[in-house]
Each structure stands twice: as C-alpha cells, then as structure tokens.
Write a protein that binds this DNA or RNA. Structure first.
Lengths: 213, 213
DNA sequence: TCGCGGCGAACGATCGTTCGGTTGCTCGGA
DNA sequence: TCCGAGCAACCGAACGATCGTTCGCCGCGA
C-alpha cells in the first residue's frame, strides 16, 4: 500500500477478495477506472483533463494508470460507446417498433429520459463531443443518426394526424431532442422524485412547459 | 500584404479606407479578431483551440496576433461578457418588468430566442463553459443568476394561477431554459423562416412540442 | 524619422506516452 | 512446510511534442 504522504484516498478501488478464483490480484478493473475518468472528463472537459488528473483521481500514478488503460482517446471511445449503446438499445425495444407513431414516440422519450439518468456521466460526455478526433466524429455521426430516427418519427406522427401540426415537424423534433437532452445539465441521481421524471417529461412535451391556465 | 506562401485567405480582415480620418492603419480591430476567435472556440472547443489556430484563422502569425489581443483568457472573457450583457439586457426591458408574470415570461422567452440567434457565437460559447478558470466560474455564476430570475418568474406565474401547475415550477423552469438554450445546437443564421422562430418557440412551450391531435 | 503591424525564434511549462526497475503476492515443486 | 520463480501492480524519470507567451528585429507608410 506504501502509505502516501499526502491526501488521496483509495477512492474507486474495487478490491477483489483475496485469493478469489481467477487471476492474480486486480485492484482496479477497467470499468471502475472508466467511471473515474468519465467523471473527470465531465467536470473539467475532455481536452482540459490531463492523464495526471485521471490517475490522481484514481489514486495511482500516471504510469500505473497506463498499465490498465491503453490511452486517453480509448477511454473516450469506451465511454461514448456505452452512451450510444444505451440510446440505440431503446430503438430496438418492441414498444419502439410496434403501435402508432405517437405511441412509439412517447415510449422512446420516456426511455430516453431513463437512459439519460441511469447512464448520466456517459451520455453527458457524448452530448459535449465537438468532433476534434476521428473518435469524436464517429460518435457525432451516430448521435445524429439517433436524432434523425426521432425526427422521422415525429414527421410520421404529424402525417398520420396524431399530433397537432402547429409547427414544422423538423423544428418540433429539434426542440424535443433539445429539451430531453438538457436534462443532463441539472439532473443529479439520488434526489427525491427522480423516478417520476420520465413520465413528467413525456407529459410536459405534450401539454407544454408553461401552458396558460 | 507580404503574400503568404500557403493558403490562408485574408478572411475577417476589416480594412479601413486608406487615409480615412483618424489613426494610422488598423488592418485588424479588436472586435473582428474576437469574432474570429469565438468562431474557432466554438468549432474546436476553447481548450482544444490553440493560439496558433486563432492566428492562422485571422491570417497572421501567432506573434502578430499578440499585438492585438492580451491573451487567450481575455478573449474568452470578452466573448462571455458580450453574451451575458445581451441576456441581462433583456431583463431590463420595460416589457420584462411590467405586466403579469406570464406576459413578462413570454416576452423574456421571445427576446431570449432573439438574442440567442443574433449573438449566436457568443452565447454558444457561454453555454459550453465548464468552470476551469476564474473567468469561467464568473460566467457560470452570472448565467445561473439569469436562469434563477427566470425560475422565480415561472414560480410567480404558477402562484398567480396564470399557468397550469401540472408539474413542479422548478422542473418547468429547467426544461424551459433547456429547450430555449438547445437552439444553439442547430440554429444557423440566414436560413429562411428564422424571423418567426421566437414566436414559434413561445407558442411551442405553451402548447407542447408534440401535442396529441 | 517615427512607430505600428508583422515576423521568426525561443522561453518554460505541461501534454500524452514510454521505459526500466522494484515490490509483493501467488503458486508449483521439494 | 518452505522456497524460489513468475508476474501483475506500481512507481520515478524521461521522451518528443505542443502549449501560451515574450522578445528583438524588420519594413513600410505617414
């Protein structure tokens, strides 16, 4: 353990039971280091976060950190993959493929809020990607594909006469995605009333945010 | 002019007429360089943008760039100031201080969309600040103060019975700000229909984004 | 002649990454 | 039961690259 002279506590350490079946002695595993890294990325921003920052947050030195991860951009890719898998998984659910366009849309919105909150750090990182590297551009393209499938669903619902076509369907789709995604700016897990958030969001995008009395 | 050997065109150059009344020969002025810098900041992200990137976008060398600006963070501060001045200016307008809470709220939303679109690069930068430096924390605090005044206005409108209190006023206020701010993610100036956007946003937050038929 | 706008070169700092070496636990064989 | 080999975890030091910033100098127009 080599008692460190300064402050860092063994924060996200996931010590496996001594002598457990399997490999030798993994003090850190890949997913817990990823969680630490994503948290730092979201606090400081990806570019402003150094590998020194990440390793310090994990409680080890920079060179030790490299024994567990292959590099900074691979951490980013793993995190973005997790977020994208969560979102695209929604589209493959039965309720997202059966029923009227409006019903499918409502289900997707509901589930999108659930995924946003359950995978908050990863989705937050995804929604802040700018496209500087090939990894970021890949994530941006996948994200645009997700938004596009929602936009086409909105258009279908309007064409079927299931929603009032007060505005352009494309504008409605953009504001819809923007409203749902903005949740990452303020949502923090563990606060009371979180479990009702998906239903409240679905209602609010149907009835309006500030509907006159 | 000293014809550069490579590609960069004299992009945002604001050449003053030869021999015009006044000072010597300001080829670049502070505001045009700020515009160039903010555009680069928004494309790559503030931290990922180097002074080399900025000067290249301006068509001069890095050392020449420093003859006109005092540093990277001062550029950021100037840009964030411009965005914040635009937003807080809304709150001082007569229509934001007189009338019912709902009318004031509608006016602020309308004007906020106008400012978002007219000052798009500066507000975009503001909405992406993370809080790494003292400048960024100052901007974050001011931005939170703006959001708080909107939240209290929503609460007032609910208390006065002017809007249907379907959900928590604080949730409505957060989704309201998120919806309006998300416009920066897709709005680009000069496209047809832009002039009607503020009114459409006001209507959509009142009637819902996807109201059932 | 003056001085502003522009330039190349260089500063120290920090970046992501690599390398060689030390520690201490685990396990097979005596 | 003891021991030595092997290896995962960890570390300090350093790599070349790039960062924001500064400096001294030059050329041209007023």
């Amino acid at each position: 353990m080599t008692a460190a002279p300064s402050e860092p506590p063994p924060s996200a350490r996931t010590r496996r039971a001594r002598g457990a079946a399997g490999a030798r002695r993994p003090v850190y595993d890949a997913s817990s280091l990823l969680a630490v890294a994503v948290q730092e990325f979201n606090t400081r921003g990806y570019d402003a976060t150094s590998m020194e920052d990440l390793s310090r947050a994990a409680g080890i030195t920079k060179s030790s950190f490299y024994h567990h991860v292959s590099g900074k951009e691979d951490l980013l890719r793993a995190a973005l993959s997790r977020a994208l898998d969560g979102l695209f998984g929604i589209l493959e659910e039965p309720a997202a493929q059966e029923g009227s366009a409006l019903d499918r849309l409502r289900h997707i919105i509901f589930r999108q809020v659930e995924v946003l909150t359950s995978e908050l750090p990863y989705v937050t990182l995804l929604l802040r990607v700018r496209g500087n590297t090939e990894t970021e551009r890949w994530a941006l393209a996948r994200r645009r594909a997700f938004d596009a499938s929602i936009a086409s669903l909105v258009a279908e619902a309007v064409a079927d006469g299931e929603v009032r076509a007060g505005v352009e369907p494309s504008l409605a789709a953009r504001l819809l995605s923007g409203t749902v995604n903005s949740i990452i700016e303020w949502y923090r897990p563990g606060r009371p009333g979180s479990e009702s958030l998906p239903a409240e969001v679905v209602r609010i995008v149907s009835e309006g945010i500030i509907p006159p009395a």
